[in-house]
Structures are given as structure tokens and as C-alpha cells.
Nucleic acid binder design. Structure first.
Lengths: 186, 186
DNA sequence: GTGGATTTGTCGTGTATACAACACTTTTAA
DNA sequence: TTAAAAGTGTTGTATACACGACAAATCCAC
């Protein structure tokens, strides 16, 4: 276990950059945000941003992932069982997240954002599945995580379009067998 | 003119430290605040604090001066004429500042705080006097600044004790001749 | 008092950040 | 179309900050 702690300067600087990026996203469209804008807002040097992020797309990716994880992790990830209730809450959280994003004028980057969200969902689902399905094959769990993440993302988009007021029960019922794969076999 | 700009890292760090100090002052008495408390709150290393401040008393001094200057400078210092109106506003500002401090449990350091306030007042008055009394002797202006700062501080304390509702007109009338020394001679 | 624990202040070393300069690409304006 | 302006991404160097170790001072229970 070589878990060397990250330098607090790094954490501070990343937070400054990401916060500034999120802040600016509320004021301008993504395409109009320049590196200089961000570094000025964050009060850090331009070169320092490139020390942490490859370019502005990399920043977008990491900032969104971060926000997503903060929104999800502290709410119910620690509550490590992936049951129906948790599943519904993740669904609602994701949907709210997308709503707040669509208000923030990220037009033209929907696909990128969609991929980022699916990636994060997949990571979360996989981690939770691994915890409770220790006997299962790793490949099977990965596949399940992929299915669930794509499925949930699609359902979320569909649900927002239809502007219904309850989470789509159909999808949830469809997903439950996947969640329970390992449980049933025990 | 060798006015090299200060490194933004320095400004950031000083602000972090001072803000933490002010924040902690609201929760604990000064004597109970340790260096470790401050650096933990500020998320900076302990050694870094000593890079900027000699000790906790030096920090107290500089933090208070900073807060004072922020309270005063941006309000009316740029408005560079030291007339009666500005004088009254500085008086009110100082009095409010002392009030907010006395709520923050700096018990046992009243004398230190008093000195800091007078020092800052003196600096401000001197700068303003120099601007409008260019023909006056420097020594005379310094003396005037000293008189005004001690006078204003004392009047402020006296006024707070008496809990009257208007600034002490007597003191203001007394001070005006000092303010106008140069003007009258023009 | 005495000893352990906490705090203070300092120092040397490694690393993260600031900054200026640079070539390059993209926007803008005329 | 073209030139100026603004933005991007990289590099070398100087400096601020993190960290651990340390002795000395202060605090505090017994």
C-alpha cells in the first residue's frame, strides 16, 4: 500500500480551478470560456492549469466527474448496498444533475457530458456490485455495470423529455434482476 | 520606482491565514487560539505561517490592520480630501469596528488593539494631510496626524461608553482647525 | 516539584506554483 | 485577403510552500 497523501497545494489549486470553471459555466457558454478566464477567476497562473489538466476538455471532464461524485458519493455511496431504494435515489440525483447542467448553457457538449455521466455511473455501479457479489466473475460484473449505466442514463433522458413526475417504474423493475444477480445465487 | 508586484501566492496565503484568524476569533478567545488551529483552518503548513508572520502577536497586529484598512480604505480613502464629512465617517467606521471587536472576545488585548487602531489612523491621516498640505512642514503634519489619531480614538472610546446616538460634535469642532491648517494659509 | 504531552519556533530539502518568453493557431476587423 | 489581436500550449528558472525533524518552552496531571 503506497498511499502517499496528495500535496495540499495540489488539492487547493484543483479546487480553485474547478470552482472557477463551474462558476464561469453559470455565466457563459462553454465555448466562450477561455483558459485565461478560468485562471484569472481562480487567481492562479495559466501554466499551473496545464500542470493539472491537459486542456479545457480534460478540465470539463474532471470538473464534471468531481461534481457528480460529490453529489453522489456523500449522499449514498457509503451506504454500500445497491438495493432498489439506493438505485432510485441515484436515478433522481443524476436527473437533477442533468437538469441543473442544461440550465447552465453547455450547449454543443451534450454528448461529451453524457459520456462523462455514464462513465461515472459505471464506476459507481461496478464498485457497489463488487462489494456485494464477491463470488461473481469480474467480467460479468463489469458488463452489468455497463448495462446499468447506459440504461439509467437513457431512462433519465427519456424521463426528462416526458416530464413525468415519478421515476420510471418500468426501468427500475427491469433493472432489479441485474442488481440482484449475485444475491439470488447465494 | 522598484515596485515589483507581490507574488500572488503570497497574497493568497496571507489572506487564508488572516481570514482563518478572524474566523477563529469569533469562536475562541485570543489566548486560546494556537498556531496549529490557525494553520489547520487555513489549510496551510505551520512553517508557512512563520514565513509570513513572526508570531501570533504579529499576526494579530497585521490581521487587525488589514481589516481596518479594508473597512476604511475602500470606503473613503480614495476620496482623498480630509474634510469634515470624511472625518465623521472615519470616526463612525472606527467606532463600529471597535464594537464588532468587543463582541469577539479579545479580552486582555484591549491595549494592543487600541495601539493598532491608533497606528492605522495615524498613517491614514498623515497620508491624507500630505496630499492636501504640500506646503506644510513634514514634522508639523506628522504631529497633526498623531494628535488626530489619539484624539479620535479617545473620543470613540468615550462615545461608546456614554452610548450616545450622535458623533460627539464637540470633538469634531475641535479637530477641524487641525484638518484645515494648510488650507487656511493658502 | 516531576514527567509526559502539547505547543512553539527553526531549518534543510523536495515539490508546486509564478512568470516571462516563445512558437503556434484561431479570431477579429478593416 | 490580410494584418493585428487574442488564445493556446510549452519550457526554463526563480520562489513559495509542504514536510519531517528538532530543541526549547509551556502546560498539566499526579
Amino acid at each position: 500500500m503506497t498511499e502517499s497523501k496528495t500535496d495540499p497545494r495540489v488539492l487547493r489549486t484543483r479546487k480553485l480551478i474547478m470552482d472557477s470553471f463551474i462558476e464561469l459555466s453559470g455565466k457563459k457558454e462553454f465555448k466562450d470560456i477561455t483558459i485565461k478566464d478560468i485562471t484569472a477567476e481562480a487567481m492562479i497562473n495559466r501554466a499551473t492549469l496545464y500542470y493539472h489538466f491537459e486542456d479545457i476538455y480534460d478540465l470539463l471532464e474532471k470538473a464534471l466527474s468531481e461534481v457528480l461524485l460529490v453529489n453522489l458519493n456523500y449522499d449514498f455511496y457509503q451506504n454500500d448496498e445497491l438495493n432498489e431504494e439506493v438505485f432510485v435515489r441515484i436515478f433522481e440525483s443524476i436527473t437533477n444533475f442533468q437538469k441543473s447542467l442544461s440550465n447552465r448553457c453547455h450547449r454543443g457538449y451534450e454528448d461529451t457530458i453524457a459520456r462523462i455521466i455514464r462513465d461515472q455511473l459505471e464506476i459507481i455501479f461496478y464498485k457497489m456490485l463488487v462489494k456485494q457479489h464477491t463470488t461473481e466473475k469480474d467480467e460479468a460484473l463489469k458488463l452489468t455495470a455497463v448495462l446499468l449505466s447506459w440504461g439509467m442514463y437513457g431512462a433519465s433522458v427519456e424521463w426528462r423529455r416526458g416530464s413525468q413526475k415519478v421515476p420510471p417504474e418500468e426501468f427500475i423493475k427491469l433493472a432489479i434482476p441485474y442488481i440482484r444477480t449475485g444475491i439470488d445465487k447465494r
